[in-house]
Design a protein around this nucleic acid. Structure first.
Length: 694
DNA sequence: GTATTAACTTAGCAACTAGGGC
DNA sequence: GCCCTAGTTGCTAAGTTAATAC
């Protein structure tokens, strides 16, 4: 069968190449152009490219085969009568009983093995026909994302459960019974009472304004000052509830777990093109108070409850459409297969659209992820040309080109984000490269013994501070002086540039190139270089993992992925230090014992004392190793205090680098990626060999 | 050319959970 | 068996990008 398969594959390969040639003729022209532009289109390079292409195709196939298992298990899960494999038939009662009887008969007469073989015979012809090409064929060219999509719709937030009558709200010291709607909004505030948010003026103002909108006219006239509102009883009640949840019996906890599992099984999966796929966020966001990040002008506003009438459902026409809760209607049922979302609604704070989409482990997300890294790898091949060009552009006669070139230099060198323009007063004041203002940079002709230093200080995405002192090339420095001339601190540094202009330019330099590709590229290449540099094949597994974390950390620092130091950081650090101190004492003891054993052996000169010396030596060694391990742990933790490794690991580092590294150095992949991460990177685990280089 | 919007990725925090140490 | 802590998962805000409208 294998041989047959290979033969078929070979034939199909040829056919596919032909059709690809045809389909990609325009692409090819473009590539040829690229090659000419590069002026180094040597035959070797072409061969490499061809090899690479071949490899990709092979890899695609490997993935496909790995999918057969999934498909089979799904089929057994779904039953063979499923719509994708057999036309649907309206079942009559007769049909059903007939079928039941048949099934019983089958169960009695046909051995299970034969039944399984029968099932395989039924499925395999169709699978063998398309499976080897699944990944390629299903990457639809015309923007189509799927052919079949069926799901059960979203899970709504539970309705408001009013407070028990003994939990009271007080206004100006007096008990006041609130209407259900006003009470619900009050509980949102009460739940956050311990949070710093509720002390912020903007938060309080926004909350109060929106709360009043939910009050009855009587409540409105009575409640005129938020400072006179006493939510403390409510707050205590919720705290007690949360304690009670924690103190629940094992059985009760198990029951809740089972219920959640049931909901997950019912609503957490969909069928997209013959695959059962996990949905990411199938629960609608519950109502509450908006918690923006940083100095957000809208913090505290009421995020309203989403009803079925707000929901747009997306699924295929021929699927079983999700049903809205009894007595309600969807806003719309759409059949748009050029998008990947299953459900959407418009939120009321910014007026933006929220989506329910698939889990990162899904085929559709996995493929996109893979594509992203392939684009970054293409950038690797032409990055030197692009760098040469922007360096050249620093000398351009045109201001806009100089600005574009300096901005690109920052994006490339410092991994800054593109930096879209934002509407003032709508969101927190944060910037990226293109939206940098004069006030965010300080130029130092000379600083700490270095020439031409630029000091950056601004708030980036999520209001995370970016602070960096970077020596730059003289030409960049002079350009920056020019851009900042005669400008106010609040003026744009790059007044002739925005992300749209920049990305259009990048698109001309390389197909698919945008500002964010540089972040992906620089992150991944840094990991690769660091791993190549610092991994010592002689090291043991923990030491190698420390090297990996160090490489990962280098990337996180480059991308400025910060975190608030964990609340328990100091304490856990202290605990570790105590352990280290104890180990040091233990080591000193062991050394003393070794010394005396040595002295003893010198006097006695017998086998027994020699052996004793050896065993003491070993003990010292062992303790030294343990101490080193603890110290390594402490260093690792200290270095990680304010750095978040997860974001780069999940979004910027080509997983194939890590997997290849694991394979090369015999590290179990589980040491690097946890279960969720392994699911997300299934595509990479399947395809990365130990010699993979980014 | 500019503004707006839809669709999708990237991001940090908090709640939850599992597993190691005592 | 309990407690502590690190790791995991869920949540949703905040970006980027390309398409579309004007």
């Amino acid at each position: 069968k294998d041989k047959e398969h290979k033969h078929k594959d070979h034939k199909k390969d040829k056919e596919r190449e032909k059709s690809n040639e045809h389909r990609d003729s325009s692409d090819k022209k473009h590539r040829d152009k690229e090659r000419l532009k590069l002026k180094d289109g040597s035959s070797d390079k072409q061969k490499d490219k061809h090899k690479e292409k071949k490899k990709e195709e092979r890899v695609g196939r490997v993935l496909c085969f790995s999918h057969i298992g999934t498909v089979l298990s799904e089929l057994s899960h779904l039953g063979l009568e499923d719509a994708e494999f057999k036309p649907k038939k309206i079942k009559t009662e007769n049909d059903r009983s007939e079928k039941k009887a048949k099934k019983r008969k089958q169960e009695e007469e046909v051995p299970i093995l034969v039944a399984c073989v029968g099932m395989l015979v039924y499925i395999l012809p169709s699978l063998c026909f398309f499976m080897p090409f699944r990944w390629e064929e299903e990457r639809y060219t015309d923007g189509v994302k799927w052919k079949f999509l069926e799901h059960k719709g979203p899970v709504f937030a539970p309705p408001y459960d009013p407070l028990p009558s003994n939990v009271k709200f007080y206004y100006d010291g007096k008990h006041m019974k609130l209407s259900s709607t006003a009470e619900e909004v009050a509980t949102f505030f009460a739940k956050m009472l311990d949070h710093e948010y509720t002390t912020k003026e903007v938060f309080r103002k926004n909350f109060y304004k929106d709360w009043r909108k939910e009050m009855t006219s009587e409540e409105k006239s009575k409640i005129t000052d938020l400072n006179k509102c006493d939510f403390s009883e409510m707050s205590e009640y919720f705290k007690a509830q949360s304690e009670a949840r924690k103190a629940m019996t094992k059985e009760d906890k198990q029951k809740i777990k089972e219920e959640n599992e049931r909901i997950l099984q019912e609503y957490g999966f969909c069928i997209m093109d013959n695959h059962k796929e996990r949905i990411a966020n199938f629960r609608i966001e519950p109502p509450g108070l908006f918690r923006g990040r940083g100095d957000h002008p809208k913090m505290g506003m009421l995020k309203r409850r989403i009803r079925p009438e707000d929901i747009i459902v997306n699924c295929s026409k021929d699927s079983k459409h999700p049903k809205p809760p009894p007595g309600t209607k969807w806003k719309e049922v759409r059949h748009d297969n050029k998008v990947t979302w299953l459900v959407s609604w418009t939120e009321n704070i910014q007026g933006s659209i929220k989506y329910i989409m698939l889990n990162p482990s899904s085929r559709i997300k996995g493929e996109k992820d893979w594509q992203k890294y392939e684009t970054a790898r293409r950038l690797k091949k032409c990055v030197e040309r692009i760098r040469a060009q922007y360096r050249d552009d620093w000398k351009s006669k045109e201001m806009r080109i100089r600005q574009r070139a300096v901005a690109l230099y920052f994006i490339d060198k410092l991994a800054l984000r593109a930096g879209n323009e934002k509407e003032e007063g709508e969101t927190a004041d944060t910037v990226g490269c293109c939206s940098l203002r004069v006030e965010h940079l300080t130029l130092h002709q000379e600083m700490d013994g270095q020439e031409y230093v630029v000091e950056f200080d601004f708030l980036g995405k999520d209001s995370i501070r970016y602070y960096n002192k970077v020596p730059v090339e003289k030409r960049v420095f002079k350009n920056l002086q020019l851009f900042m001339e005669d400008k106010e601190p609040e003026d744009d540094l790059f007044d002739r540039l925005n992300t749209s202009i920049l990305n259009k330019h990048l698109q001309e330099l390389m197909d698919g190139l945008t500002a964010k590709v540089f972040r992906t590229y620089n992150a991944s290449i840094t990991l690769q270089q660091q791993l190549n540099e610092i991994t010592n094949s002689e090291d043991n597994v923990p030491a190698k993992i420390l090297s990996y974390n160090r490489a990962n950390r280098a990337v996180a620092i480059l991308c400025n992925h910060q975190r608030a130091p964990p609340k328990t950081f100091e304490k856990s650090m202290q605990n570790l230090q105590t352990k280290i101190d104890a180990k040091k004492e233990q080591l000193a003891d062991a050394k003393r014992e070794l010394k005396s054993a040595k002295a003893d052996a010198k006097v006695r000169r017998d086998e027994k004392s020699k052996k004793a010396v050896e065993s003491k030596k070993k003990a010292v060694q062992r303790i030294e190793e343990q101490l080193m391990k603890l110290e390594v742990q402490a260093t690792d933790r200290e270095e990680n205090k304010q750095i978040a490794l997860g974001t780069s690991k999940l979004n910027y580092l080509d997983p194939r680098i890590s997997i290849a590294w694991c394979k090369k150095f015999g590290i179990p992949i589980e040491k690097i990626y946890n279960k969720t991460q392994r699911e997300k990177f299934a595509w990479a685990i399947d395809m990365a060999e130990k010699d993979f280089q980014f």
